[in-house]
Structure formats: C-alpha cells, structure tokens
C-alpha cells in the first residue's frame, strides 16, 4: 500500500477506533460489549499505528510500557473493590451513584464500571505486550531499535 495513504488512514482511524473501544467498554453493562472487547479494539488502534509508522512510533504513542499498563489496569480493577470494604461491606461490592448530567436523567456511575475499566486497561496492555513483543521478535535479524 502506498505509505502516504496508509499513514493517513491510520491517523484517521486510530482515534475513531479508540473512541469506539471506550464506548464498547462503558456501555457494555447494558448492551453486548464490555471491557474485554473494548480493550482489544483499542489495541487494534495501536496495531494500526504500528503497521503504518513502525514499532517505535506505536510504542511512543502508547506512552506507557504495555506491561505497566496491564499492571495499572489490574490495580484499578482491584482498587474498585476496596471502597466498599471501608464501609464494612465485602470486597467488590458495587457502589453506585447518579451523576447529574444535563439533558439526561443523570448518568449512573459505579465501582463495577471502574472494575470494567480496569479490565479494559489490562486487555489493552496485554494485547500491546503481544503485539509489540511479536514485532520485536520478528526483527531478530535486524538490529534492535531500542524500546
């Protein structure tokens, strides 16, 4: 493919994919979807960037080391279960609130969603570990380009 076309496509598509992935993750509570599929979708966005601009650029766009991203996600998921313990309720009990968002009857937010967000991050981090790891494994013949 023409690299210019590829770059353009990637530049346009990646943010869209990221947005869709977030929607999938957040709305997953009510419609099919969820943190897992959302996280994979987000990873696809970065994979696209990698195909277009190469591994280092994709790695740079991700900003965080993928394994750290996964670790952070795990921490978020774990942490979402802790607040109820402060109230003397069991670990991972749901706490819900309704945020007043103008134009709707309020947006429901709760720790289970935070949990799902954690899963989203774990999946994104893991998928990026796979993708970036594979890509590094691929150029075993080429000199390592850092990262």
């Amino acid at each position: 493919m023409n690299p210019v076309v590829m770059h353009t496509v990637a530049r346009l598509m990646a943010p869209v994919l990221l947005l869709v992935s977030l929607v999938l993750a957040v709305r997953g509570h009510d419609i099919p979807g969820g943190g897992f599929v959302g996280g994979l979708m987000a990873a696809t966005a970065f994979a696209l960037l990698m195909v277009a601009f190469g591994r280092p650029a994709a790695r740079k766009q991700l900003r965080v080391h993928p394994t750290r991203l996964a670790a952070a996600g795990l921490l978020v998921a774990l942490f979402s279960g802790v607040p109820p313990m402060m109230q003397g309720r069991p670990f991972l009990s749901g706490i819900w609130a309704r945020l007043p968002v103008p134009g709707t009857d309020g947006l429901k937010v709760g720790t289970p969603q935070l949990f799902d967000l954690g899963i989203y991050l774990v999946v994104l981090g893991t998928a990026m570990s796979f993708i970036l790891g594979m890509a590094r494994g691929e150029d075993t013949t080429a000199p390592e380009m850092g990262g």
Binding site: A71, L74, L78, V82, P90
Partner: peptide, 20 residues
C-alpha cells in the same frame, strides 16, 4: 470477612504495584 479476601488483594495488589 475482610480477612478472607485480603490474601488475594495483598498479593495481586503488590504484584501490580511492583510492576509499576
């Protein structure tokens, strides 16, 4: 009841924190 969930929270939390 908190005691029962603590082992897993501690270990996984420390593992994730350690990686960070």
């Amino acid at each position: 009841s908190a005691l029962l969930s603590l082992p897993m929270i501690l270990c996984l939390g420390a593992a994730a924190t350690g990686l960070l």
